[in-house]
Design a protein around this nucleic acid. Structure first.
Lengths: 192, 192
DNA sequence: CCTATTCTGGAACAAACGTTCTGAAATATT
DNA sequence: AATATTTCAGAACGTTTGTTCCAGAATAGG
C-alpha cells in the first residue's frame, strides 16, 4: 500500500532525548531538534506530535530507563546494603561521568511547578526510586545491616534527595572527589 | 539641571527579582518585567541594561541576602550546633513557606552549565554558605557537640547539598512533613 | 522662564519561535 | 504499471522574543 518509515522512531527519539537532556525544554528549539534528529520538520510532527508531547515521550523514556537501572542493581546484588551502595555508586558515576545533569532533576526545577503532565511523570518516577530503596532498606534492617531504628521510607527519600545535591554540587564545582566524599558521608549516615 | 528618577531602583529591582525567582530566566519575558516592575521599557534598559544584566543584578541581590541570612543565624546563637540547626530549620521554613524554589538552586540547574557569569555568582555564593557552616562545624567539634572524626568541609557541603534535596522533594510532593523528616535525619547524620 | 534631563506610552524592529503547508521524490503494496 | 503513503527540503504562517526609538509630558536647576 505505502512506503515504510525510513527511520527508527526509537533511535530518533533517543537523539531528541539527549538534546532535551542537555539543553532543557525551553532551551531546545524545534530547529535544534530538526538538525539533531536528522529528520524533516513534518516527519517529526507526524510521528511525535508537537514539541511538548515529544518532550513528554523523551522524559518518560528517561524516567523508565533510570528506574530500570535501579531495579537492575537490586537483582544483581544479594546483600541489600550492597545493593543500596551500588545504587549510590552509580549515581556518583552518572553525576561525574556523563557531562549532563540528571534530566529528571533538571526538568523538576524547570517545569514541575508549571507543567502538570511533567509533574506527574516526575512524581511517579520519584515514587518508583524511593520504593525500590525502601524495600532494600527494610531488607537491610532485617539482615542487621542497617539500624532498625530508622523509618525505611525516610531513609529511602533521604538517599534520593541526596542525589540531587550531588548534581548541584557537581554543576557548581566540577569536582569528582567532592561528590565521592558526599556519597561516602551519605552511606555512613544511613547505616547508623 | 534635570528631572530626578521618579522610582526607587532598588524597590523595582526587588520586583524583578521576585519575578525571575518565580519564572526562571528564560521563562521571564521583557513584557513580564515591564508589567511587574511597573516601569517603562526604556526606563528599564536605561537603568539596568538589558535582560541578562538585570538578571545578574537580581541573582546577586538574592545571593547576598541568603548569605546574610546564614551569617545572621551565627551571630544570633551561642552554641555552634544550635546555629547549624537554626540554619537547617530556616532552610526548611524557606522551602515550605515561600511558594518559590530557591532562586540559586533553580538558576544552577537552568544556567550554571551555559552561563559563565551566573556560574561565578553561584559558586561564590555556595562557597560562602559552605564556609559559614564549616566554621560552625569546627567550633561544634571543639565544643564536643559534633564528632571530631568528620571533615568539617565535607559536613558543611553535605548540609548545603541537602537543602537542594529539600527543594526538589517539595516540588515533587508538596509535603511539608516529609521535608521536616529529611531535616531531622540530616541533623542526626551530622552529629555522629 | 528656560533648558536639560528623565519620565511615559507605544510604535517599530529584526530575529527567533513553534507550527503548518506545499510539492516533488521515493517506495511498498495491489 | 498504478496507487497510496511517507520522506524530504524548504517556504510560509502568525506569534513572541529582546531591543531600540520616538514624541510628548514632567520636573529639576540655572
Amino acid at each position: 500500500m505505502a512506503r515504510n518509515k525510513a527511520f527508527e522512531p526509537e533511535e530518533k527519539l533517543k537523539k531528541a532525548k539527549d538534546l532535551f537532556w542537555q539543553k532543557g525544554y525551553s532551551g531546545t528549539t524545534m530547529q535544534d531538534l530538526v538538525d539533531t534528529m536528522g529528520l524533516n520538520r513534518g516527519s517529526i510532527y507526524d510521528t511525535y506530535g508537537d514539541k511538548h508531547s515529544l518532550f513528554l515521550m523523551c522524559l518518560t523514556s528517561y524516567a523508565d530507563s533510570t528506574l530500570a537501572d535501579f531495579q537492575q542493581a537490586v537483582t544483581e546484588t544479594k546483600s541489600p546494603l550492597k545493593a543500596i551502595e551500588k545504587i549510590i555508586k552509580r549515581a556518583v558515576v552518572r553525576t561525574v561521568a556523563e557531562g549532563k545533569t540528571c534530566m529528571g532533576v533538571k526538568s523538576t526545577f524547570e517545569l514541575a511547578s508549571v507543567d502538570a503532565e511533567v509533574h506527574t511523570i516526575l512524581k511517579d518516577n520519584t515514587n518508583g526510586m524511593v520504593a525500590v530503596l525502601k524495600e532494600l532498606v527494610k531488607k537491610a534492617q532485617k539482615a542487621g545491616e542497617i539500624s532498625a531504628k530508622r523509618d525505611p521510607g525516610v531513609v529511602a527519600a533521604f538517599i534520593v534527595a541526596n542525589f540531587t545535591g550531588f548534581w548541584q554540587f557537581y554543576l557548581v564545582y566540577q569536582d569528582a572527589a567532592l561528590i565521592q566524599q558526599q556519597a561516602d558521608f551519605l552511606i555512613r549516615s544511613i547505616k547508623k
